[in-house]
Amino acid sequence: MGCFSSTSRKQFPGHEDPILLASKTFFSVSEVEALFELFKSISKSVIDDGLINKEEFQLALFKNRKKENLFANRIFDLFDVKHKGVIDFSDFVSSLNVFHPNAPLEDKINFAFKLYDLDGTGYIEREEVKQMLIALLCESEMKLADETIEAILDKTFIEADADGDGKIDKTEWLNFVTRNPSLMKIMTLTYLRDITTTFPSFVFHSEVDEIAT
């Protein structure tokens, strides 16, 4: 088992000990191992190097590698915790941890704020929201007149931008999502509740004694 284990980890940079990863997240050891099965299948879809690159991530999301998408890029960048241009297994588990049903709402709200703060200025600015809105309209092949887009932005900022400075800060964001809890639905993945059922093959590749799971 020792030889198998070390070879496996060499092929997968960032494949920390499942027990350690489980101790730092809301996942059990079995769930971390099931996530590894998912990670393996995504990370070998284009280049079999044990890492997820942007193309592989988009392929997994859209089942189509040609699709360029602002939101998928933002999610990828946030999952790329070490800013290496690729997602390793440890990044994958720690990022998905925020989407766990048991993760604190505060973490989900902070992650969503970072997601929408495209330029990382610490504020969600009107131009950024406009850019995301236009990206969404392109993606869904929906056409809206410029005045309609501006009206949606006006309405959004009247609701969210309490001090009226044209940008949403973290406190305003917290208040806004508290009044609009449906916005946080995308931050919880119910799939993570029964991940071991979705990827039962982890049992055959487990490196951990049953007692530790």
Partner: peptide, 26 residues
Amino acid sequence: ASPLTMNAFQLISTSQGLNLGSLFEK
């Protein structure tokens, strides 16, 4: 719902790019 009755974030959150559930669909 009509886009006009929604705020920008309600619309944005419908993006397929934010639907991480599709990672789990084989």
